[in-house]
């Protein structure tokens, strides 16, 4: 995947993901409709290639307002990834030359890989994750399962044990998927399954869409490093 295509694809996917977030947010906080409406308009502008740069900068500015308004994130890690993507795309459009624009997109790809590796590493270091107890506790009493029925999965010890190990190993081994385009495809399919499970079981729909938005940067970087 070429650099320009990866950048443009990220912008289009981001516009759609932020529009989805903004519509949900208007339903949650109606009094914030004016600035969320502006955010929607900037998402529409981002779909027009000629308006991409000012739209990205505007969305980054509103991202700062979002942080101010909610005194941090509203939706945890998905808000952080949203701002990270906006910051990297803003930097890519502000870059004085192609080298620095590529560095900005590469930073996003590196952070995407780190999001899996660090998350897997900290779990692996925790005995509760290695024994399967941690994932059992997520289902048993955490605030995440979307229905009481899902709490019964806490009693399926084999599911929580092997599920926990599958998550940890996939996350920690993620850099290995960068060795070959087909390996990366396999890695992204596994990651998509992981994000989809989180979205369905724990209602983390915004995580699913925003993490997908960072994927073009990784596909581009993998090709750039191995070509």
């Amino acid at each position: 995947m070429g650099f320009e295509f990866a950048l443009r694809l990220t912008e289009v996917m981001l516009a759609l993901a932020l529009a989805q977030q903004s519509l949900e947010q208007i339903a949650i906080d109606r009094r914030d409709a004016p600035w969320l409406g502006l955010r929607l308009a900037l998402c529409a502008a981002l779909l027009v290639p000629a308006l991409a740069a000012p739209a990205i900068w505007g969305l980054f500015g509103l991202g700062l307002w979002w942080l101010w308004r909610y005194d941090g994130s509203f939706n945890g890690g998905s808000d952080k990834m949203t701002l990270l993507i906006l910051a990297c795309l803003s930097a890519a459009h502000l870059a004085p030359d192609r080298f620095w624009a590529e560095m900005a997109l590469a930073y996003l790809a590196v952070q995407l890989v780190l999001s899996y590796v660090i998350s897997g590493q900290v779990k692996l270091m925790n005995p509760a994750w290695r024994s399967g107890e941690a994932l059992r506790h997520v289902f048993l009493f955490s605030a995440y399962p979307v229905s009481e029925g899902l709490r019964r999965l806490a009693d399926r010890r084999l599911v929580t044990f092997w599920g926990g190990w599958l998550v940890m190993l996939t996350e920690v081994a993620f850099p290995l998927f960068l060795l070959h385009p087909l390996a990366l495809l396999a890695g992204l399919v596994l990651a998509a399954g992981f994000h989809l499970s989180n979205a369905l079981l724990f209602g983390l729909n915004r995580f699913f869409w925003i993490w997908l938005c960072a994927w073009p940067s990784l596909i581009w970087l993998q090709g750039r490093l191995t070509s």
């Binding site: 890690g77 999001s115 660090i118 779990k123």
Partner: peptide, 11 residues
Amino acid sequence: ALIPSWRFFRA
């Protein structure tokens, strides 16, 4: 957000 820790579900 710019330098995230990414320590999801550490415990």
